[in-house]
Design a protein around this nucleic acid. Sequence first.
DNA 1: TTTTAAATGATAGTATTACTATTATAAAAA
DNA 2: TTTTTATAATAGTAATACTATCATTTAAAA
Lengths: 225, 225
Amino acid sequence: MEIQFKIKMNERLYLRNPEETELGRRILKHSVELIYKLGFESFTFKKLAEEIESTEASIYRYFENKHNLLIYITAWYFGWLAYQISFQTNNIKDPKVKLQRIINLLALSIEDDIHTHHIDEGLLHPVIVAEGSKTYLTKQVEKDNKKQFFQPYKDLCNLIGNIILENNPNYKYPKSLASTIIEVAHFQNFFMHNLTSLTDYSKKNNEVEIVEFLNNLVFSSIESK
Amino acid sequence: MEIQFKIKMNERLYLRNPEETELGRRILKHSVELIYKLGFESFTFKKLAEEIESTEASIYRYFENKHNLLIYITAWYFGWLAYQISFQTNNIKDPKVKLQRIINLLALSIEDDIHTHHIDEGLLHPVIVAEGSKTYLTKQVEKDNKKQFFQPYKDLCNLIGNIILENNPNYKYPKSLASTIIEVAHFQNFFMHNLTSLTDYSKKNNEVEIVEFLNNLVFSSIESK
DNA sequence: TTTTAAATGATAGTATTACTATTATAAAAA
DNA sequence: TTTTTATAATAGTAATACTATCATTTAAAA
């Protein structure tokens, strides 16, 4: 028996559920690949349609626009991450080890998860690193927020925030530190790969050093005083 | 006598120097205002032209495209910040106080600096908070980086990194911490104003709490062990 | 099995965007 | 005064981000 992993997505993110049809899954798979290849700005539904040998109009039946598709992908990523975290921290007692595992998941490149056929997590990670923040850095944040589009991000912050509190129940900024861990992990990864001189990491592909930096940052703050 | 503040900008960022002509300065002033109002995605040279009662073609004589204009504005901001920092930390002996002033400058809303007529820093700060990272989160980062477009950001990181080393000469990640201070200050500010539940700050406009969080984060890391 | 409904394909069309090009005019420098 | 330079006015183009229509294929219901 094959176990397939599925995340319940916010229904307002799509017009037709892409996980339920073959075409929908092809849209998801190839949009990650194409955004990875072209960057979000140059990515268009027309190019995606050519890639999957379908038509622009068909893609528009699944997603209202490419912005919602990006939010979908990002939300999916955070949902998947939350699952990975609860899976990987399950049965672990030491809250410090839990938090370290989370930092690893966020900062290190990810291998493809075979339980999701239609998404290649190995590509998804760099896509989120480079494009993820564009989901909320818009004039419509408030609107999108009201539609709960960022719920998976918030849930993840709460999850991490609670583990921070397990480490130190008196810590004053659990949610801010949680969002900081996520964001720092991602943009330090981006800087290391693309703007090396903004970091202190010795080699261009040494993501382990980001983990070291983050561990120092996070635990000295949690354990201070 | 009036003292006017001027930043030497990378010449490859523009086709014609916008600081040297009346029209150029109007382009800068109103592009900040219009990006603030519309967001970068909806901002176009056509709308800007209407705003300043000029033409699209005239704006294109100053900037190759709107992306370069955004980089120009962002670079200008970081140049201005570097100047503010050296000004405000001048004559201060205590490196801890220096770093605290920097955190204040980055995280708190800024008042208009009367020494620059053609840029309203009060608007520039939220524009950089929301749009600044779009300068480098593109497929052309490498190209833009080779043209030294991000030099002011790097210079600022070096400046802050050196002050971090004044605080603790053995600190292992001065540059990573410097870029982290900048980025965290900005996106925590964004979250506080737009996605409140991702932070722990009690009121929506209490930027002082961001400063507290950042001080805790930075100094516990620098002073650890 | 037939009918019917739903999903997709094929095609066309539109307003806007991100430019480039050309010519005319006004202002400043030689 | 002539010449250069900057700007305005206008036109044009390919691409983008859609919307709309109708035909065809596929799958589900009767």
